[in-house]
Design a protein around this nucleic acid. Structure first.
Length: 613
DNA sequence: TCGGTTATGTTAAGTCGGCT
DNA sequence: AGCCGACTTAACATAACCGA
């Protein structure tokens, strides 16, 4: 008798997974396979008493089934007296570890599937429970005379009480028939309540999803949305007591819906279900819906398209490929023409088919700092680039080597530092303070925002009192804080739309930490970062390097500005050595010659752009 | 007035990048 | 390489809002 090969193989794979294959004995693998413990599920249920049963099986049953050779391999030192076979102490430890690992694996698997088991921090879980209790208490206090709201759990409890009462009433009588009827009624009623709840939630969810898709349909790709509505499956709902789980038909995620006690009956809050559904259409739900882009279109709009003829994915190479392909990257075959994607925009002086290497002026002079400018057209410099490219795929240097390199690359004492600009800033500040008109302008810059007609209207509506309208930005914050302090929960805070816009601006220019500090110091006066980020997500998002020509043109037209623009670059960084990013096919670290007239780097490609009227 | 929706804040869990 | 803080994303939870 030999163990089934497939079962044995399954167990061995499990041991490999837990990296236990080196020290787990063969006889134990066989014994577990013989007794049906070859799966993770079975092993996760293994207990100490089962180990005794295994030993009994090996002592009594196995000797009768195994051949002499098999016995020799299996029993080892117990060969002469199989009746006293036992799993030795060291092997017991190995077995315990296997069982423990299997239990962990099963537990992780279930928690990944079930959102209810999502690990919450103790504090959060406690808070959540407290909130839930507080909610029920508050509801009862608010509506002391209201009709009792019966959730499925409460219904179950009540019905059990009725059954118990019935049992007591019928005590002494032969009432087995009645009992069985009562139990049947209980189960049927619970099932009926569940079914109605599920159907109800299902209808609401479907109604919401269709309405949401129809709303998109007006502005987006009609066919796509039409297909989505047609193929949309009925959502699967599972009600468990006061909570319902709605299975997303797109990704399979189980969103939680809550049962809230209403005035007369329970109602379901499906905000999480709806919000989850919306995430699948995030890109289609931008504020500027007419600007929805397909992936290809998006690629065409990026600066990348002006420099590379090959699609992004074709140029995408791993860091390990970087070394071998470095020479190809400098060839003109790999870097071709791009082209204008916006038909109405004419880009002058755009030099098509110019290899990247040729865009760098060979006669470029090294400025009075340590930034190195490289002539890529010469052989020696091309080798230099290749060497740098090779370095990017090399492992990190040791600390000692880094220290040596750092000493080698000590900065030129003439190099400008950030602190050098402090004096200039101070001088500007002094000039502003000394000039009355400038001082007034800067002081009121934020307040001027609040003197716009639309904003005043918005603030007036928010404050609901025309006599008490905010006179400036800080007054508006104060009012918001005051109004929000009247409500109980922080989630009930509300802010005027334009205050949120200004806060978004503050967040963007000052940064997260500065804005967080402001929020912390003005509780309920400024919206939280979450709210600010949410409002930001409502705006159209530009990806890195994207040339948003039509938006730029709209912006200029709206303000009657001339259709001439100057393009500069952001995110300028000082880097230690040139680098290559294979994902974007970009070389970072080479410096263009500065223009004598403007002081900006001379970019040989896009010298100027004229928007056609 | 009811019941679903919306706006808001909190939190978990993951990623990223700088520092040592 | 590992630590750690900043940042991102989306779920969770709550109360006010609003249309039928």
């Amino acid at each position: 008798m030999a163990p089934r090969p497939e079962d044995r193989h399954k167990l061995v794979e499990l041991l490999n997974e837990f990296k236990m294959e080196n020290y787990f004995p063969n006889y134990l693998i066989d014994l577990l396979t013989y007794t049906g413990y070859s799966s993770c599920e079975a092993l996760s249920l293994f207990e100490e008493t089962d180990r005794n049963k295994l030993e009994e099986f090996a002592q009594q049953t196995l000797p009768e089934l195994l051949s002499n050779d098999e016995k020799e391999n299996f029993y080892g030192v117990f060969l002469k007296k199989t009746a006293i076979f036992r799993i030795v102490e060291g092997d017991k430890k190995a077995l315990d570890k296997l069982v423990s690992n299997c239990r962990k694996k099963i537990k992780n698997f279930h928690s990944a599937l079930d959102t209810q088991d999502r690990p919450l921090q103790g504090k959060s879980r406690g808070k959540s429970l407290k909130r839930s209790v507080a909610r029920s208490v508050a509801c009862k206090e608010r509506y002391p005379d209201s009709i009792e709201v019966i959730s499925v759990a409460k219904k179950r409890k009540q019905l059990n009480e009725v059954n118990e009462a019935a049992l007591i009433e019928n005590e002494g009588q032969s009432c087995s028939q009645h009992n069985s009827e009562a139990n049947e009624t209980t189960d049927e009623t619970i099932e009926e309540v569940k079914r109605i709840s599920e159907e109800h939630i299902c209808n609401i969810v479907k109604k919401y999803q269709i309405a949401f898709l129809k709303q998109l349909k007006n502005v987006n790709n009609k066919e796509e949305i039409e297909t989505e509505i047609e193929t949309m499956k009925t959502p699967r709902v599972e009600v468990r007591d006061d909570i319902a789980y709605v299975l997303c038909h797109i990704c399979g995620f189980k969103s939680k819906a809550y049962c809230v006690l209403g005035r007369y009956k329970q109602r379901w809050v499906l905000s999480n279900v709806n919000r989850h559904f919306k995430t699948h259409f995030k890109n289609l739900n931008a504020t500027n819906k007419s600007k929805i882009l397909t992936t290809d279109c998006e690629k065409k709009r990026t600066i990348y398209s002006y420099f590379s003829a090959k699609p992004l994915n074709e140029n995408k190479k791993s860091a390990s490929d970087c070394n071998n392909s470095s020479s190809d990257l400098l060839s003109s075959d790999n870097i071709g023409t791009g082209g204008s994607t916006e038909e109405e925009i004419q880009i002058n002086n755009l030099e098509p088919a110019a290899p990247l290497a040729q865009n760098i002026d060979p006669a470029l002079e090294i400025p009075n700092n340590n930034l190195e400018v490289v002539d890529l057209t010469s052989t020696s410099q091309a080798e230099y680039v290749q060497e740098n490219l090779r370095q990017c795929s090399q492992p990190r240097r040791s600390r000692a080597t880094k220290a040596c390199k750092s000493r080698e690359m000590q900065l030129d004492i003439n190099q400008l530092k950030m602190t050098d600009y402090f004096d200039i800033c101070e001088k500007i500040k002094c000039q502003i303070q000394e000039c009355p008109s400038l001082k007034t302008e800067f002081t009121l810059s934020a307040n001027l925002f609040f003197q716009q007609k639309n904003l005043r209207k918005n603030i007036d509506e928010f404050t609901d009192s025309k006599k008490n309208t905010p006179s400036d930005f800080f007054d508006a914050i104060k009012m918001a804080a005051s109004k929000n302090s009247d409500v109980k929960a922080p989630s009930a805070n509300r802010y005027p739309h334009d205050l949120k816009k200004l806060c978004l601006y503050l967040f963007l220019i000052s940064g997260r930490l500065a804005y967080q500090t402001l929020v912390a110091n003005i509780p309920r006066g400024l919206p939280s970062i979450s709210t600010v980020l949410r409002s930001l997500s409502g705006y159209y998002k530009f990806s890195e390097g994207e040339v948003a020509m039509s938006e730029l043109k709209d912006y200029l037209n709206q303000r009657n500005y001339p259709l001439h623009v100057f393009i500069s670059e952001d995110q300028t960084a000082i880097v230690r050595r040139p680098r290559y990013n294979p994902a974007t096919n970009q070389l970072i670290g080479y410096v263009f010659k500065k223009s004598q007239r403007t002081g900006f780097p001379k970019a040989p490609k896009m010298k100027s752009i004229v928007l056609q009227t």
